[in-house]
Computed example of a mutant assay.
Amino acid sequence: MIEMVIEQRRRDLGGFEVGRVLPFAQRRMIGPFIFFDHMGPARFTAGFGREVDVRPHPHIGLSTLSYLFDGAMTHRDSVGVTQAIRPGEVNWMTAGKGITHSERFEELRAHGGPMDGIQAWIALPNEAEEIDPDFAHHAAAELPAYESDGLVARLIAGEAFGARSPVKTHSPMFYVHWALQPGAKAQLEAEYSERAAYVARGSVEVDGHTYGTGQMLVFAPGQPVVVTGVTPAIVMLLGGEPVGERFIEWNFVASSRERIEQAKADWRAGRMKLPDADDDEFIPLPEPAPPANPMS
């Protein structure tokens, strides 16, 4: 039933720690999901520095999906959108042929408080890789929800459990938020060929084994999966149908290495428009590290 367990790898991004789950060396993607970061959990004191903000940077060939359990952040992008996101809401940005954006923490900086959420990247299918960039925000009340016997479920994106999210996706996929009380049971159906569950908080039992915070369970296809809450738990379900091989380098995703090289050249040369509200700074393209000196 469980093909693999992926442990998050904690990384400090400069005053803010994330748990990197995807891509993983032995499992690069789950359906179209090619990147999965657990942002936090963290608690900030009012007045923290701007180094925590994510300065303007580019993307191609993907959609980014931001979803929070706690806290708030503000998205700014090169199509002219400035949009705050709070718990239970969705920020869905489609990069297509190219977009730049930043993520700021003005509200937390002013008041302090917790920060906890997930940012995922969804690779676009071949026919959508070069579409025009776009952005959409969805309030929590817009998302299909279900509650019964210790389970609260929200369909964030895609289709699952007979429901469809209003978030506009480009390939068959699903992304679901489950909140489970101890002893509550919920079943993930076998309708997609690639499926996984990430334990964002607490612990759950699957197939007689207990799994905890920071673990992603990758499921074999073809069989339903029953998840039981051991402690109060938050579980993120994700997956869908594969979109084909994808290359990923820095913030770029594409079906060819040539397209990524073009995007790198465009960013290096300043050919990608910055967000209007962020035209005074950006993240430079990381340059390859020089080869090691064999004499050192």
Rank of each mutant, 00 (worst) to 15 (best):
D278W: 04
V204T: 08
R257M: 13
P23W: 07
A220C: 08
T169Q: 05
G112Y: 08
G19R: 01
R104H: 06
E129G: 07
P294S: 08
A269H: 10
Q187G: 00
P224F: 03
Y211K: 07
V90Y: 04
V218R: 03
Q83C: 12
L180D: 03
K168S: 11
E147L: 11
I34K: 00
V79Q: 02
M93L: 15
F24D: 12
A139K: 14
D70L: 03
V225R: 13
P290E: 02
A141Q: 09
M93T: 14
S256T: 15
H209Y: 11
I122F: 05
K185Q: 11
I34F: 00
K264H: 11
E245H: 15
E89R: 02
F282P: 03
M295S: 14
E3Q: 15
A139C: 12
M115H: 06
M173K: 05
S203A: 15
G183A: 07
L22M: 08
S63V: 10
T74R: 14
L274N: 05
R164E: 07
L285H: 09
D279L: 00
G229D: 10
E103G: 04
F135T: 02
G162R: 03
R201K: 13
L13H: 06
G112A: 09
V90R: 01
M29E: 03
M216Q: 09
F105M: 09
I234A: 12
L22F: 12
G202L: 10
S193T: 15
F69S: 04
V235H: 03
P32K: 04
H59L: 06
A160N: 08
M173N: 12
L238A: 13
A140R: 10
L108A: 01
S66V: 07
E191R: 13
R201V: 05
I60L: 04
T64I: 09
G202P: 05
D12W: 12
L108V: 03
Q223P: 04
R195G: 04
F48C: 04
I122R: 00
I30V: 15
G222T: 00
E7Y: 05
A190F: 14
A196G: 15
W178D: 03
I156H: 05
K168R: 15
I34D: 00
E89D: 10
V227T: 09
A136G: 01
T228S: 15
A42I: 03
P133Q: 07
A220G: 13
A200C: 13
P32L: 06
E245S: 11
G98R: 00
V199E: 09
A220H: 10
I85E: 06
A140K: 08
A95I: 11
A196Q: 06
P232A: 12
L217C: 14
S193A: 13
H75F: 07
E147W: 11
A46Q: 10
T100H: 04
F135S: 01
H209R: 15
